[in-house]
Nucleic acid binder design. Structure first.
Lengths: 141, 141
DNA sequence: CTTTGTGCAAACGATTTGCAGGATG
DNA sequence: CATCCTGCAAATCGTTTGCACAAAG
């Protein structure tokens, strides 16, 4: 619950995956864990270096790649030419607002489980992408 | 049914969308209509220029952009850094084989319609991405 | 100490753009 | 014949890589 604890949780997750805990890598992952907006590399970098330079662009890229390789972060592809990252690796769906571009997580249990048995393929996972207008952009709320 | 007819269908679709019918644009769209494999720009270009040079890279890009703008083709984003194109603009889902990378269309009615009413957003469309092994890669078939 | 990570700048690859000439309606 | 398209090459943008130095375990 305390800040100490959150730090330890992140450190332990990195260690448990066999990743060395460096300030830059920690900062990238901690930043990603603290947000829910599926940021781009550019947004992460700007955030990290806001107060004073913590990491370089190349290191953010390689950190994200390392985190992705061990399954601590996922890449989210919803728009052309835009790679976003997500520290929420639990199965969930995505909503993409066509007006403001925001991306919202949609709970896994929003949909009754699908019957994928009758497909001529071996389905291992699936995800739903929903597009439309978010709460802010509809004016309702 | 005849080749003449298919050509006319494509010409008429372009015209009806207010697009000029140029050999390059026709070739790009006709090629896309003739395949079901969601090719990349590179694959389209290679195919067009196989016998003798028909179009340049830049023109394929701009043709696809024009076709996309009028709703005759859709972009398919399933892998990082790979833009694929699809002349099937009817609603459907996608299956992506993790082994051979092939992409298959999955019929819209595979899933019972979802109840998106209880989301706090205005859902206008959705699509399902399924990942796994295709028929060839499972060995069943 | 050995291995791995970082920063910088250069390299890269996909996509876009500016421009002059050419084709379309 | 006015408008839009094409081809080419240069520009651009996001991402990756090589290398020398620094830090982690």
């Amino acid at each position: 619950m305390s800040k100490e604890n959150q730090r330890d949780v992140i450190v332990n997750r990195l260690k448990s995956k066999g990743l060395r805990v460096t300030p830059q890598r920690f900062a990238v992952y901690a930043n990603l864990c603290s947000r829910r907006d599926h940021p781009t590399v550019e947004q992460i970098l700007k955030d990290l270096n806001q107060d004073f330079p913590i990491s370089s662009q190349a290191t953010v890229y390689t950190s994200l790649q390392a985190l992705r390789k061990v399954g601590l972060v996922k890449e989210v592809l919803l728009e052309e030419g835009v790679s976003r990252y997500d520290a929420n690796v639990e199965p969930h769906h995505h909503f993409h607002c066509r007006q403001c571009g925001s991306i919202k997580d949609v709970p896994w249990d929003t949909f009754d489980s699908f019957n994928l048995e009758h497909l001529p393929y071996l389905a291992e996972s699936y995800e739903v992408t929903i597009r439309g207008l978010c709460d802010r952009c509809t004016g309702n709320n």
